[in-house]
Nucleic acid binder design. Sequence first.
DNA 1: TTGTATTATAAGTTCCATCTATAACAAGAT
DNA 2: ATCTTGTTATAGATGGAACTTATAATACAA
Lengths: 301, 301
Amino acid sequence: MNLKETDLNLFVAFDVIYNERNLTKAGQVLGITQPAVSNALSRLRELFDDELFIRSSKGMVPTPVAHQIITDVRNALFLIQNTIAETEKFDPSTAELTFKISIGDSSEYRLLPLLIKELAEIAPNIKVETFFVSRKDAARELAAGNVDFSIDPPLQSDPHLRQEKIYEEEYVMIVRKDHPILKKDTITMDDYLDLSHIHISNRKTGFGQVDMTLYKLGLSRDIVLRAQHFLVAPYVVEQSDLAITTTKGFAMDRNLPWRKLPFDIDPLVLHLYWHESKESDPSSRWMRDLMLKTYGKLQKS
Amino acid sequence: MNLKETDLNLFVAFDVIYNERNLTKAGQVLGITQPAVSNALSRLRELFDDELFIRSSKGMVPTPVAHQIITDVRNALFLIQNTIAETEKFDPSTAELTFKISIGDSSEYRLLPLLIKELAEIAPNIKVETFFVSRKDAARELAAGNVDFSIDPPLQSDPHLRQEKIYEEEYVMIVRKDHPILKKDTITMDDYLDLSHIHISNRKTGFGQVDMTLYKLGLSRDIVLRAQHFLVAPYVVEQSDLAITTTKGFAMDRNLPWRKLPFDIDPLVLHLYWHESKESDPSSRWMRDLMLKTYGKLQKS
DNA sequence: TTGTATTATAAGTTCCATCTATAACAAGAT
DNA sequence: ATCTTGTTATAGATGGAACTTATAATACAA
């Protein structure tokens, strides 16, 4: 055994295979093709004189030897990572880089304007790109570095992701000015269900949080418009008698009248997710702080 | 920064450069040429955006950044090393490998016969090669893996070498049977200095431990024969009136008469040295134990 | 057994770390 | 200053290892 005759790069492949338990997906994370991963695995197998991962219906399951190794490997990679991250200087005023953010549903229109404004002032050469990555792919995309941040409700919990609550806001019902319903100061459940509603979601399928809550109460509302993008919503609301149920901030923002909902619903909570490998990366850390601070400002408004 | 776009193999070069502070010697340890090391260093410099090592009269001196990094790097490499060492199975009865041992001066003829005998019984496919590596090269040769063990007096102390006392034996004076001096049971200093002596050493230069001790007393002896190999000594002693001052074990071994020395001298102490990188290597560990055990047997005789 | 995921193998290609050779450099000796 | 010795850095060429695409083998569920 000798380190200088060992290709240490194999160990990052090992780590990824262990996490994904699927060579094809590991390849996506590593940015190489599946056969390359397969080949790397076979070199690891020779190195350790062990199968390391055995093909089965549950994916590539680690052998005892692989289990034995993984923690040391992870620690080692973390240390190496650190040496680089620690010495990396980061000056937001001159840094030229692009952050890729997966931002789903309704958050984009609220987050971006303020964030871009902040960036323009203190980090003029930092760019932002937003995507929408489906929740089940988020962990892998973050691991692969295709996405730097993901903003999502606190549902999934991949062990390699870090998260922090970034946003919380109560739901209200919003209608156009001079809408007849506004004669009442408090809306009853009957009032609410009599109205026609807009539902915005970029997920094709199923229930949003509002409909889910109603469903649990044995109720359902009349959704007349199901739209993909939030930007259309204000125009529709202003030109019609339709109601939209979304965060209070939306109402304030657009200067639209709103009323409390006639039922209890958990507030909208969003978490900011990032991959553990970026934990101590100075630029990532800086951006995290900025986003949390920026959302903090939004909160107060 | 991203591990998957980083050549981790550079870090073992970094570690060696840090230890050697000399690219040429680092190349010897790594088993590559100096320009290759220089090139690796330049890649490291790009990676860290720092000079890392600055050329000076004292060699390549590490920058603050290099100092900051080194411990993490060493820990990481140690962990990786461990993953391999831990999973390496070692069965002496079937293992086929060769240990290279640097064994200086007089120790070879005492150690080898018994060691070989032990090996033949319990590890028939393990071979041993012995060299003589000068003390100042020992650390580097051990680091490079050109030599697995070195047996030397406990002088040098490279921080990357591990050592354990393996042997200690008192010096005596040995002469042929029926030598006139044997009429006396205790030898005086005058007796000793009147005799002509053999000195065995494979170092070309200067004093051995005996002559050094005499020198400190303001004395010197008459060395008639200075020979390279210990094997010739017994024949010369048996055929002449020359005396040889060496370990008591030599006398017992050859069944030669001996007398205590008329001056105080530290006993011969030998240490077994190995490189820290082999610390947890199963085969190295096994061989260490065997050698210490074998010498233990010698001690008692 | 067929279909749908996978992983493994094969053959060809590209790229980059290494090599040899040489230049540039640092520092002490003359 | 100039030479000498011990270095490190650069240049250009090359070989081999790891990647790619394409395809075969495999596992398992329907």
